[in-house]
Design a protein around this nucleic acid. Structure first.
Lengths: 238, 238
DNA sequence: TGTACATCAGTGAACGCGCGTTCACTGATGTAC
DNA sequence: TGTACATCAGTGAACGCGCGTTCACTGATGTAC
């Protein structure tokens, strides 16, 4: 910060690398014991350091946990954004489906990181402000697909038989479209997208947390079917 | 078991009561520390016993956890069944909505028990067979509403524009309707119900685990709206 | 280029804590004659 | 009804373990003159 143009010293490079390695080892340990079981001493042991040395890199266990949480949100957010960008712009339904499948693929490949961010909150851990923006990437990307479709005139209008939005809900939706600058997106379409978003993660959590064992496992077919129904629900034309 | 008609001795009554009290105290401690933090020693302390005494009642910590899990599944299952039974039989959509709202009410009143059963799995804990039946009560009750509607001819037929079910999915659905004896329920209606079930808990988990903070919190209006959309999705006529 | 000093990474010992589970035991409750 | 014995609940000490965090320290890396 004090001299941003200067090339990094050996010490600075070593510090950056170890900071990353600690995080990676911690991520590996999530698999074995979950967020609650993440132990600074175990991380240090695995890295061949003494546990107190970690305090040069992370001021406390919670800060390390926060770094993992932010990374996980960023990873799933990036995967989502990429999937959307890779699908044809003029076909919002395909973009939607691509995003959903990319999210599922990431979640199945990283179930413990998924549980870290979408599972039960870690008791005693208070998520700091810094997690909010990364956490928003997925839903923002998803409703972005709807907003683009709306701007292109490719979004199905609200069913005339559907009742108008409840007042409180309309206000929340309007506040959110304002905040995100999605002026083209009607409030009821946003609500449809948000409900589809909760649907997506509900199914994913059930799959990963074992609620479908013995009924719809493997869940590939159920997921594919749900993605289509979600697209309908969100107003994306077939 | 050996003499079921005989009236319980004082020792037996004391045992039954303490077994219950231990469970209740453990339930109370879930609030403070979550499933991972549940400590036999803390439970014993609170009950004025020595920790080794608990082993007369539960063979291990995991068994106590299992008892809590079963109780939680049974509680939310019973609440669901009651809500359905209390709503008019001829109005499946009302029954559905009543069940959803009862589930939400229970979850909001017992967030830690909710997290215990629908949150991330406790690392190292393997749910025994005995949890399966209680876990099934909610989904069975929900699809029961659909099955009754189907038997009454009150279920919307599958949209003609909707593609037929994928083969694997149809097989899973048929196996499940067989298993549950719901012969009147078409496979695609079951799938719709299951997807609605995942939707319901997805929204609930997001609400309880803090994903809606800053956007759709309080979530009452969003939830009510989602319940209606789920009923549509499940084929229940308005 | 060489030296004196400041910065920082990593060490090792310690503090104070909590945990699940086992085991030999005491003393009360229940049972069979 | 009374006694002898078996069952069982609860005790207290112990085993062996792990944890997050602090602190005074050594020795290496970097900086300024």
């Amino acid at each position: 910060m004090t001299a941003p143009t200067r090339t990094a010293t050996a010490r600075e490079r070593a510090r950056a690398e170890l900071t990353r390695e600690i995080k990676e080892e911690a991520r590996r340990q999530l698999v074995a014991a979950g967020a609650d079981g993440l132990s600074l001493r175990a991380v240090a042991r695995e890295l061949g350091m003494v546990s107190s040395a970690l305090y040069r890199y992370y001021p406390s266990r919670d800060d390390l946990l926060t770094a993992l949480i932010i990374d996980a949100y960023d990873a799933i957010g990036e995967v989502t954004e990429r999937a959307i960008a890779a699908a044809p712009a003029g076909r919002p339904r395909e973009r939607w489906a691509a995003a959903c499948h990319a999210i599922r693929d990431w979640a199945r490949a990283h179930p413990h990181e998924y549980a870290l961010i979408y599972g039960s909150p870690v008791p005693g851990y208070q998520a700091p402000q810094a997690t909010i923006a990364p956490a928003a990437r997925v839903p923002v990307a998803l409703v972005g697909v709807l907003a683009q479709a709306a701007a292109d005139g490719a979004l199905a209008p609200a069913s005339p038989s559907a009742p108008p939005l409840d007042g409180a809900l309309a206000a929340q939706a309007a506040a959110l479209t304002d905040l995100l600058g999605l002026t083209a997106l009607p409030p009821d379409a946003l609500v449809g997208g948000v409900i589809a978003w909760t649907q997506l993660f509900g199914l994913l959590s059930f799959e990963l947390f074992g609620q479908l064992v013995g009924s719809f496992e493997p869940a590939d077919a159920l997921f594919a079917c749900a993605v289509e129904r979600m697209a309908d629900l969100a107003g994306l034309p077939g």
